[in-house]
């Protein structure tokens, strides 16, 4: 746009010693929650961040935003196919490189309407592929690297939807539920080591992913608040964090509702 500075999008900030910065890898870096987490990290201190996603154009827009917020940030953008095992292994390898990451955040996610998952198996598969299979494969790849490095925090964005299958979103819920079981196992594997595995379970959050819910008038938590609590939970290395915290109680009730009651509810 003529005088605009858009051409600066791709300019790299040079002259910083990368090795002094703490390194963060974000998978699904276009996710609104992930973007807000990165903004919070950079508000505290510069860092080296590797942004991994499926849409390179949007990743570059995210990178430009982060660069304005903290010009001392060192950014790398990687994109690839999240449905191919080789591509996932390759992305994880490139992102890790030779420098261990302090934090790896897995934030990729898709949420088409449940009805579409039921009427089109391809949509159903995409939900399972991105939300569950790719997340578990990325996690497994980074788990091996963290094990070799002997440290690191692996943070996985789950969802309250994974707590109990519901007619309104059970395909998405099943994928998120898979991640819960997966994380449980990984936490067991790394118990007593310096490696932390954190499962984050946001409730409905105001992001582009939930725009359709918003249109229906659902109350959504502000994404900046959710990100703030996620960053705190990652810092503390808690095993499972509901964000906002009230969802721990709400989901406990929903999990424990007897089937006879639950099946009468349209939730």
């Amino acid at each position: 746009m003529g005088s605009l500075l858009l051409d600066r999008l791709l300019v790299n900030i040079k002259g910083h010693d990368v090795s002094e910065l703490s390194k963060i890898i974000v998978i699904g870096a276009n996710s609104a929650i992930a973007v807000h987490c990165m903004r919070l990290w950079l508000a505290k201190a510069p860092a080296e961040i590797v942004l991994v996603g499926r849409n390179v154009e949007r990743l570059q827009a995210v990178a430009a935003d982060l660069r304005v917020r903290n010009p001392a940030v060192v950014l790398r953008v990687l994109s690839g196919d999240f449905t191919q095992t080789d591509s996932i292994a390759d992305l994880a390898g490139q992102a890790w490189g030779t420098q261990p990451a302090a934090i790896v955040l897995l934030a990729q996610g898709v949420l088409p309407p449940q009805q579409d998952c039921q009427s089109d198996l391809a949509v159903c598969r995409a939900v399972l592929d991105v939300n569950a299979v790719s997340a578990a494969l990325f996690a497994e790849a980074f788990a091996a690297k963290m094990e070799a490095a002997g440290a690191g925090t692996l943070a996985v964005l789950g969802s309250v939807a994974g707590d109990r299958g519901r007619q309104s979103n059970y395909i998405y819920g099943a994928a998120k539920g898979l991640m819960e079981r997966y994380v449980q196992g990984l936490q067991h594997r790394f118990a007593g080591t310096a490696i932390k595995v954190v499962l984050l379970k946001p409730g409905p959050t105001d992001t582009p992913m939930t725009a359709a819910f918003k249109q229906q008038g659902m109350k959504l938590a502000p994404v900046a608040d959710v990100a703030e609590q996620i960053v705190r939970a990652i810092n503390q290395g808690v095993a499972v964090a509901y964000v906002p915290g009230k969802w721990r109680l709400i989901m406990m009730i929903i999990r424990h509702l007897p089937r006879i009651v639950f099946n009468r509810m349209r939730i």
Partner: peptide, 21 residues
């Protein structure tokens, strides 16, 4: 049309004070 999700900075020139967002 809720615009608050369009909240990205695009570029900032520290020398001239031009901000694109």
């Amino acid at each position: 049309w809720q615009t608050t999700g369009l909240d990205g900075f695009i570029a900032f020139d520290e020398q001239t004070g031009r901000l694109c967002c």
